[in-house]
Amino acid sequence: MHIAEGYLPPVQAAAWFAVSTPFVIHGTRNLVHQVRGNPDAKLLLGASGAFTFVLSALKIPSVTGSCSHPTGVGLGAILFRAPVMSVLGTIVLLFQALLLAHGGLSTLGANVFSMAIVGPWVAYGVFVLVRRLGGGLGVSVFCAAALADLATYCVTSAQLALAFPDPDSGFVGALAKFGSIFALTQIPLAISEGLLTVLVVRLLTRVSPQELRRLGLLRRPATTGGVAA
């Protein structure tokens, strides 16, 4: 869910850039380190970014200055890890602004914080936590994708509530207004995205296990030290 161009007051737009910058710098250092160690990683990262763009290109109009669609951040964070997603997500959001007029340049900082930082970190954290608690791959993927989606929309509601506090009840009232309107569309959407992500990961484990091993999502099969007769 992107906040439209020019929608936030300039001071808040600048503040969200300041908040997002350290995370994007951390992700950039991570990416530069990966590329220095393995120049071929650049091609894989390019493919991953293009995949994320295409995943998040499906969208459904919503209220409150934004739009709803599968964010793709849950699947992206599970496959490519949260720090890398902060850079890939930023590039994808910039492309969405310039190629689709979706989101904007002045609101890029706010959109990066909700969609490229909070969403992927929640997804990755939930995925690791559920796996460590003994959850299966399907349950972990569902929880990660659905909660990342909800987290993204909660942060966007809070950003809009901070920008436009309610005249009577301030931030809390505005959060309730934006949050309740989002809830109508976002809770079903989060469940849908969770289910869809499970189906995608199941399909990929069947048809492309070697790529998932390359990304570290599946463990490499144990090698047997047999000796040819």
């Binding site: 650049k42 970014g49 590039i91």
Partner: peptide, 15 residues
């Protein structure tokens, strides 16, 4: 950083 602009250019070409 050049690495980021090159990844962005690859994304643009592939998408």
């Amino acid at each position: 950083p050049t690495a980021v602009t090159e990844v962005a250019a690859l994304i643009y070409r592939m998408l």
